[in-house]
Design a protein around this nucleic acid. Structure first.
Lengths: 224, 224
DNA sequence: AGGTACTTTTTGGTATGCCAATCTTGCTCA
DNA sequence: TGAGCAAGATTGGCATACCAAAAAGTACCT
């Protein structure tokens, strides 16, 4: 799903959907919170029509839940849900890695190396922000090089829903050095173009995130 | 659209979305065909509003493509697209199989056996219809038992988009006996609760479908 | 005769209004 | 006093009207 950055009037629904998406994944809305159409509409200075269409899109993406005649609420992001999504994400990345290794050019591998060393620079600087960004870049690039647009879209969708979890996990990860070592293994497997091994390392690497997440540091619900 | 014995007006968008979905996956609309809002709206006896919302949902599901200010067209179902989707489907089923083997009860395995032998009955009767139905039942059950609702939903979505391809492939499959043998292997692996092996056999089994599909037996447009 | 610019028409985008279902609240009656 | 119900308020569902952008057709200029 491509976002045309048209800040004018074309694509109001996309703008609204994008806005709501960002606020939901960044946890500016509480899970379970209602999203009343009229209130939100005036808040965003749009009418209900584009807002409703945006909500339908977000519902199809799993970010909100729409009950008939009862409106939309922010989808529950329980630890169990996040575990599920993270598992599927790791499966998709594993599959993508195998494809990517089969088609990656020397320049592609070189770019992986470059990103990896940039990330390592952020690591030794204890720069978690840039580490996080570069980490995401690498993962996304592994998927995008696979060339399977279905895989790419589904991965992007899941990745969005897990954005906040991964962000928080990155901020408070005490085993940062371990994660960095895992990325060394990923790069080595990429250099060897060993798809199976990249897939295995990726799956192992991603597994850590949601296991940590599931073990107590879940989203503070606030909704009893 | 026929006014079924459904309730008064609850869920018009869902009805429209369902109607369009069925017609698209059953190839009653040509890929690339435009879906003009006004024309379709009067044809379905609804206003443009619920129709537009339904189209947004279908776009999020990948069944239609909406271009800004140019409307919705039926998504292209080229052989390449189907290959992509089938590949991801096989990846998801493989992952589901591993989970399912870890949690399946004896009764679950018994039900797999029962479905398998029902399918084998359809096979020896040369009853392609029931074979197809039971085949789908088995695959869906493998996924649904995994317990990962995210995985289940994504699989269902992809499965829908591939429905027609799989149906046609089933009707004209000359290597039916081979497919049956592959299912024997799948069942054997299930009985052994060997998740890796079920996954491998599934991936191998599903691979055949889209390879056949890609080799010339693609959608023939114009067959109204 | 061909191309360009302007006008008409078609079609998608957005706002708004009305209706129905749901939730709230306060009153009545046992 | 509490349960039940009814009326009002709230909110979502759908239809329609209006606006803007793209497409199509035509006339005019070169």
């Amino acid at each position: 799903m491509e976002e045309t950055a048209q800040t004018t009037h074309a694509g109001l629904v996309e703008k609204v959907a994008h806005y709501l998406r960002e606020h939901i994944v960044m946890d500016h809305f509480q899970p379970g919170q209602r999203l009343p159409e009229r209130t939100l509409a005036v808040e965003l200075n749009v009418s209900r029509t584009p807002l409703r269409e945006a909500l339908k899109i977000l519902a199809a993406e799993g970010l909100v839940v729409i009950s008939p005649n009862r409106g939309a609420v922010v989808a529950d992001v329980s630890a169990a849900d996040m575990k599920e999504k993270a598992y599927v994400l790791s499966v998709l990345e594993q599959a993508a890695a195998e494809l990517t290794c089969a088609v990656a050019s020397d320049d592609d591998i070189a770019e992986f190396q470059a990103l990896h060393y940039e990330m390592k620079a952020a690591f030794v600087r204890r720069d978690r922000q840039n580490y996080f960004r570069l980490n995401q870049d690498i993962h996304n690039r592994i998927v995008s090089l696979s060339g399977n647009s279905t895989l790419i879209d589904m991965h992007a969708n899941l990745s969005r829903q897990l954005y906040r979890v991964r962000y928080l996990s990155n901020q408070r990860n005490e085993k940062w050095a371990t994660a960095m070592e895992e990325h060394e293994a990923i790069l080595a497997a990429l250099e060897a173009r060993d798809g199976k091994r990249v897939g295995y390392e990726l799956r192992n690497h991603l597994g850590k995130t949601w296991i940590k997440y599931a073990n107590g540091e879940a989203v503070s619900p606030g909704s009893g």
